[in-house]
Every structure is written in C-alpha cells, then in structure tokens.
C-alpha cells in the first residue's frame, strides 16, 4: 500500500507531496486541479510499463503519448525531469524518472531500469520494483465485454459472489441474484429482480450497473490499486453508505488500495460515517487545489474531515 507519494514536474504539478494515505482515499477538488493527473502519476508509480497506455486510461481522445501527455517537461523548464516517489511500509524503494531523451539529471542513487522510450522522452524506474496491478472504474469508459470478464471472475469464488449479491441486495431489495447469461455464445450479465425472467443488467438502472462495475472490478480483478472515477455517478445518495461499506470491507479483505474521485459532499460524508463506524478509520481525503498556475494538494485525516463536516467547510 502506498503510504506517501511525491510528484515533481508532472503535468500541472510542480511539486506535490501527499503523506498519510489511507487504504481508501477520496480525491476532491474543483475542475482542473489535477485529479486525473494524480491518478496517472499513481498508475505510473504502480506499474511504469503502463506509461505508454496512460493516455487512454482516464482521458478521452487518446493521442501519441509523447505529444499529448508528456509535454509537461518543456513546460516546467528545459533542464528538468519528472520524478515520482512513493513510500510503502516494508517495501522496496520505488522511484520513477521521466526526462528528455538521454537527459536524466539524477537517479537519486538508484539502479535503474528503462521502461519507456518514446520519440522525445525516456522513462526509468528503480530496478526490480514489483509491478502492481492497477485497474480503473471510469464513468467515461464503459466496455461491456471487459465488465463481463471482471464479473465472471468476481463470482468465481462463492465468498465473492455472496458479497456482491449481498451488497446489491442492500441497495435494492428486489435484487435476488446476478448471473451470467448468453445469447449466440455472447455472454452478458442478468439480474433477478423478482420477475418471471431475469433482466439484462443494462435494464436494471444506471446505479445498479455502476455498482456491479465497481464491485466486479474489486472482487474480480483483485487489483493492488483501484481507481473509481466520480464514484457517486449514477448512485442515489441513500445507497452511498452501502457502497462505502462494501468498498471498505472488500478493500480490507483483499488488500486493495482505493483512490476514488467525487464532486459530492453527500458522498464524502457517507464515506466518513462508514469508516467512523468501523474498528479502523482507514480513510483519507486528498484535497487538490490550484495556487496560481500550479496544482497543489494535501491529505486530510479523520480530525480534519470531521472538522470540515462539522463546520460545513467546502472540501470538494
């Protein structure tokens, strides 16, 4: 689990240092404060080899990585390099460097492996770091086939299947079970809502679709790190406590670190109340903001989250 992250010269961040991260982290901030950039930095830290695919992971439009995504170095100055650092309890030091071709300034004493060679930028990381599995649940990228695969994995173990159905049943008591069905050898997900036949998941409503997507990703893929973009999207506020309860239980049981984004105060309060009711308050808010042209941020612990809620201080 990442305990702290340092980002230098990466997209809008000149320098961002976040410490005291939690098992579950809710990233908040106005538009254009660097939420997606933070998720991209964490992705590269977790698995540097994803750098070449980063452009398609969280943003629409794609493009050539060098041209579209790695122009931050020229913006930050001629002789700078991107440095990403992370500390994880009991784990090997993990550093990522991105610089213009052959212009790496400092390896900070690390033995390095090369992981990216683009047209104008190269990337290196600490040699021998474990590649962590990262998955993202995005509202923008719905890929039904990928979701079917994740769902199939999620219900492979009876314990996971029961947890998924229990969570969905807590949100909508009509839901009795969720299964895979197929037409012309093409699988799809169906839901038993008490009708004569099960209905396709796509007809069960956006909220249920979203919940199945989130928990299939967590239970099925069992990533080391999971991103959930705009977690409240499509989910009624009354269901948010159940969603957070599920995320808390699954992430703890499977050792997944979660980074979710939101623009919803109700979502933030629901998350806080969920974790406050648990034995361990393993939840943090990462608040991003802009200082002039520069993105910056901080981690808020329980004391400050409670203070913000009590004083109705805007965190989003």
């Amino acid at each position: 689990m990442f305990q702290s992250i340092e980002i230098e010269q990466f997209r809008g961040f000149s320098r961002l240092a976040l410490s005291d991260l939690g098992r579950v982290n809710l990233v908040v901030g106005k538009n254009n404060t660097g939420k997606t950039s933070l998720l991209e930095a964490i992705t590269v830290l977790a698995d540097p080899a994803t750098m070449g695919d980063l452009h398609g992971l969280f943003r629409t439009g794609g493009g050539v990585p060098d041209a579209r995504f790695y122009h931050w170095l020229p913006k930050h100055g001629a002789d700078v390099e991107t440095v990403l650092r992370v500390t994880s309890p009991g784990q090997k030091r993990r550093r990522v460097f991105v610089a213009r071709k052959d212009r790496l300034l400092s390896s900070e004493g690390d033995k390095l492996d090369s992981f990216y060679r683009g047209n104008s930028l190269y990337g290196w990381c600490t040699a021998g770091v474990l590649r962590l599995r990262v998955h993202a649940v995005s509202v923008q990228h719905r890929v039904p086939d990928a979701m079917v695969d994740a769902f199939a994995e999620a219900v492979r173990a009876p314990e996971d299947e029961q947890q998924l159905e229990s969570l969905l049943g807590a949100v909508d008591s009509r839901i009795r079970s969720v299964r895979l069905d197929a037409v012309a050898a093409k699988p799809f997900i169906v839901v038993d809502v008490g009708l004569r036949e099960r209905i396709p998941l796509s007809q069960a409503g956006q909220g249920i679709y979203r919940l199945v997507a989130i928990f299939s990703e967590l239970l099925g893929r069992k990533p080391d790190i999971c991103f959930i973009d705009e977690i409240e999207n499509g989910i009624h506020y009354t269901a948010l406590p159940t969603v957070w309860k599920g995320i808390a239980e699954v992430s703890e049981r499977l050792g997944i670190q979660v980074f979710a984004t939101t623009h919803s105060r109700e979502c933030l309060v629901a998350a806080h109340e969920c974790f406050a009711a648990r034995d361990s308050y393993d939840f943090r808010v990462i608040q991003l903001y802009r200082l002039g042209d520069v993105a910056d941020g901080r981690t808020l612990d329980r004391k400050h989250i409670e203070a913000a809620i009590a004083a109705e201080i805007e965190l989003r």
């Binding site: 608040q287 910056d296 203070a307 913000a308 201080i313 965190l315």
Partner: peptide, 11 residues
C-alpha cells in the same frame, strides 16, 4: 483549530 486548519487552505 482543526476547523481553521481545514478552512484556511493555501489557495
């Protein structure tokens, strides 16, 4: 004090 620390963020 926690409320002030939270409210008075740098930006």
């Amino acid at each position: 004090i926690a409320k002030l620390e939270t409210y008075l963020r740098p930006d």
